[in-house]
Design a protein around this nucleic acid. Structure first.
Lengths: 108, 108
DNA sequence: ATTATTGTTCGTAGTTTTGCGAACAACAAA
DNA sequence: TTTGTTGTTCGCAAAACTACGAACAATAAT
């Protein structure tokens, strides 16, 4: 079973989706996407959760490739990973377009 | 912190993403998107996992609103939930477009 | 040296997810 | 009534996720 018979890596798409599968991580991504970059503390300030938890969410987003971080002692600067962001965009785009122009379903 | 200052429901987007956050569920969605509808058995046949597991994945996709199912005794017909599919498409689209036209990041 | 700042990592607790076989429910057929 | 077919639900086990405070690491300032 090959996903959509398109150039979409099923595993990779699922990995992106999984990383996005938590409201806090969506918030973080939205925030980062609205900026060019910012520090950990800025992100933490936007959220009502412990810094350890923020750090963990950032790690997952980084592991999924959606963001990147670099040390600017003593702070850490985070930003969207542009390359993978666009890849994810293409994947999701292609994925949903599969159904374009199709009609009927069961029920209404 | 309002996601992207757009008409995107953060919770809903995360819910969609979470449902898509598993390779098997991506496969199922792709399969359903390539058809108008099909039966549980057809989906099960495409996958190397136990029917109980398939049923569970289908339940999650249904709970997330991405698919729907109806009984056609003794079978169950599944299909994409078109309305929510398009909603999800719009959400993901809007989400990723946030970063459009932006440049610099930290690191490369 | 001591203190302060910034984040990460560790250890823990509770919840959720994933996957399976077995049991079950609903119905049709023999 | 018994047997088959089709899927769902139950109960279980292992793994992963979520969140937190505390401890820690790296560096700068006093």
């Amino acid at each position: 079973m090959n996903c959509c018979e398109k150039n979409i890596d099923t595993e990779q798409l699922a990995r992106f989706a999984k990383a996005m599968g938590h409201p806090t991580r969506i918030e973080i991504l939205c925030y980062l996407a609205s900026l060019d970059s910012c520090f950990f503390g800025d992100i933490h300030n936007e959220l009502p959760i412990a810094k350890a938890t923020v750090s963990q969410h950032l790690k997952e987003l980084k592991d999924a490739g959606l963001i990147q971080g670099e040390i600017e002692t003593p702070k850490v600067r985070y930003c969207i990973n542009k390359e993978n962001w666009e890849k994810a965009q293409q994947y999701f785009n292609g994925f949903f377009e599969t159904k374009k122009e199709k009609v009927g379903c069961c029920a209404s």
